[in-house]
Design a protein around this nucleic acid. Structure first.
Length: 208
DNA sequence: CTGACGATTCACT
DNA sequence: GTGAATCGTCAGC
């Protein structure tokens, strides 16, 4: 498969402005997440996502329309990056969706490296490519060089964007499961808002 | 200003 | 399976 830059078509703004965040999370499987910081280009195919359904979702940082400096970007228009620090160590990358004042987001939990593997190895301090390089949301950000300072970047700019190279995941290869690490969310923790590519070795946690 | 804690990961046992 | 790492964020004083 051809992986040069010219084959990468950014997802249009319309993609992010739609109202169904669960559907968007499913559709992001198979798309390519690209980062281009300091002339280092890395790209990877998305294989695991989670939808966070804003004000009515107890697992969301924006539950009850809670606005803080951190969550403010989620209250803006879809198509921006929401990056936040977890456990003091891990930078988690999310895509903001829906229109202004509806704080939806999709967490990217796992990707499969396509371009810039050497740079990902340097960033993560790993010696060889294996499934752990970009498995789990903390590792995704580490390998792609994403930091909390990148929160608020627009996904149609050239530093972080998501592209479609025409690759299609068959519906039969997609599995919906409950989300990871949100037990505190009560009944909302059981919602099938996590999407994975069946059998992909980069998928984190339970494979279904 | 202070203290508690988290959409996790890794190195252990 | 368990615990430590580690710091920005937020509520409360």
């Amino acid at each position: 498969m051809d992986h040069n830059l010219s084959s990468l078509n950014k997802l249009p703004e319309d993609f992010y402005l739609r109202k169904d965040v669960v559907k968007i999370a499913r559709e992001l499987l198979g798309k390519i997440l690209v980062t281009n910081f300091d002339n280092i280009l890395t790209a990877a195919r998305i294989v695991e996502t989670e939808a966070y359904n804003g004000a009515v979702d107890k697992a969301s940082h924006a539950f009850g329309n809670r606005r803080t400096n951190r969550t403010e970007v989620m209250f803006g228009e879809g198509g921006f990056a929401y990056v936040y620090l977890c456990y003091g160590i891990h930078h988690l990358f999310n895509v903001v969706t829906n229109v202004k004042d509806t704080p939806h987001a999709v967490l990217i939990r796992a990707v499969e490296p396509i371009m810039g593997v050497e740079d990902m190895l340097i960033r993560t301090g790993k010696k060889i490519l294996d499934n752990t390089l970009t498995r789990g949301p903390g590792n995704v950000s580490k390998a792609l060089g994403i930091h909390t300072r990148h929160t608020g970047l627009h996904l149609l700019d050239d530093e972080i964007f998501i592209a479609d190279d025409g690759f299609k995941i068959k519906p039969s290869q997609i599995l919906a499961t409950p989300r990871i690490g949100v037990d505190y969310a009560g009944a909302d923790a059981l919602l099938p808002y996590r999407f994975i590519v069946k059998g992909n070795p980069y998928v984190s946690g339970k494979k279904g």
